[in-house]
């Protein structure tokens, strides 16, 4: 595994639960992170994004008035934030496959099921730093490429013809492990 100096990483933790924010902060501090901001919902997070440089967001799903899905969509829309490519790690108790697909369609980069563990969080951070997904823009979608695994065997409809992007099957990567 590559080594990273997390003391230079700016993280925004968005969760309506002060306990969860504290828990995630504790883990991030232990990784060496020093610049950790937090917000209690999507609106606060948008305001923080306009004021602070943020390298990674760790976002809960269910919050009021703006939830994690709406926040991610607004970030990817790019009108109000300086960096629409910023990685979004969704930390959530919503763990069905349907939830996972919904998160992915919103533009979430990585998905992490509660309860949060140091190993899970560290692996997602390594993923967004060391192996980031390329972005895809279509008329209907802008966000991290939703297909990561290579699958050269697929011959069905909707097959991409780019030889460098032979990841054609609608596959889920290790995010899938988190879905119940």
């Amino acid at each position: 595994m590559n080594a990273y100096d997390f003391s230079r990483l700016n993280v925004l933790v968005v969760d309506d639960s002060p306990h969860m924010r504290q828990l995630v902060r504790k883990i991030l501090y232990a990784f060496g992170c020093q610049a950790i901001h937090d917000a209690a919902d999507g609106r606060q997070a948008m305001s923080m994004l306009q004021k602070h440089q943020v390298d990674v967001l760790i976002v809960d799903w269910m919050m009021k008035p703006m939830d994690g899905i709406a926040l991610t969509k607004q970030i990817r829309a790019g009108d109000l934030v300086p960096n629409p490519y910023v990685p979004v790690i969704m930390l959530t108790a919503h763990t069905t496959m349907q939830n996972l697909l919904q998160a992915r369609e919103a533009g979430v980069t990585e998905y992490l099921a509660k309860p949060v563990t140091p190993r899970g969080l560290l692996s997602r951070l390594h993923m967004v730093i060391g192996n980031p997904r390329p972005f895809v823009r279509t008329n209907e979608f802008f966000g991290p490429d939703r297909r990561r695994k290579d699958s050269s065997f697929y011959e069905g409809p909707e097959r991409r013809e780019d030889p460098d992007k032979q990841a054609d099957v609608f596959e889920l990567d290790d995010m899938e492990e988190d879905a119940a």
Binding site: R8, L9, P87
Partner: peptide
């Protein structure tokens, strides 16, 4: 991010 954080001495 990789350019900013990668290090031999974390």
């Amino acid at each position: 991010l990789r350019a900013k954080l990668a290090t031999d001495k974390p």
